Computed example of a mutant assay.
Amino acid sequence: MSLGAGIRLSVTTLTVLPVRPGRIDRSVAAVAMSVAPLVGAVLGLILAALLWLLREAHAPSLVAAAVTVAAAALLTRGMHLDGLADTIDALGSYRRGEAALEIMKKSDIGPFGVAAIALTLLIQTAAMSALYERAILSESTLAAVVVAYAAGRTAITLACCRGVPAARPEGLGALVAGTVPLPMATVAAAVVIAAAAALPAQTWQGPVTVAVALLAVVALVRHAVRRFGGITGDVLGAAVEIATTLTLIGLTLR
């Protein structure tokens, strides 16, 4: 059944959880990319629980935030950060097409990629620290972590919409590009935006934050199509980190 296989593929692709993938084809990939926000929400729940435990242990806010961000990287094998680094290196080279894709294929990381990873982790840790400090006053603030990581994985659903081509004939991008119907992607985005509206004191700020983050993903995908000819697994990783980081930033603003 495509639903069960799709959920398993989504979990194995986006996390380190030991789930057997089962059948893999484009119909299964369509389900996997469609349920990516749900996987992100589960990941967010795990991280929010960790943040709560650290709060109960009276860990300093910066330590708690750094541990939580590190846990997020471990739970996703760091693959989204790797994708971010490769994508930024390719974009920073100002090359197009195959020349840019060759840069993305290299195992080493260039200066643009190193800076992208370092700054992303720094910003995420600072934002998580701010959420942690608010959580001391209100446990419901931890729900912001769930929304942020769900929004990050909604980026994948949007990036895999019908009409978005793959940059290469092989790899993850070729498997998932163009598999998600636009109505499904729209519903996924709307659900996460609505969830953001339910956050404490986030009636307008939460939805606007998620909407802006997802619009940034759309802009990234359009730029990737122009520069690379389509999306790759690395572009999907970059989209995840960009959406997650922008959402975390927005949800810390008062």
Rank of each mutant, 00 (worst) to 15 (best):
R227I: 15
G92K: 02
L81F: 02
A29Q: 06
A100L: 09
P60N: 07
A213F: 05
A211F: 07
A198E: 12
A196N: 03
A216R: 01
G113S: 10
A90Y: 01
L220C: 08
P60D: 15
M1W: 02
A148H: 03
A150D: 04
A130S: 15
V42G: 02
M128R: 00
L14E: 05
P111F: 06
V187T: 10
T186A: 14
L215H: 06
P207C: 05
L50K: 00
E170K: 02
A155P: 13
I117M: 07
A177K: 02
F228T: 12
V35D: 03
T157I: 08
K105N: 13
S27A: 15
R55T: 10
A64N: 10
E139C: 07
V192N: 01
L53K: 01
G163P: 14
V218W: 06
A167L: 08
A30R: 09
W204T: 15
R96M: 14
A72Q: 08
H80K: 08
L101I: 13
L142H: 04
A196G: 14
R77Y: 07
A197W: 06
R153L: 15
I242P: 00
T125Y: 04
W52Y: 12
T154C: 12
S10I: 13
T247W: 00
S129A: 15
S140P: 11
A238D: 03
R77N: 14
T186G: 14
I156M: 11
L3A: 09
L101N: 01
I231F: 04
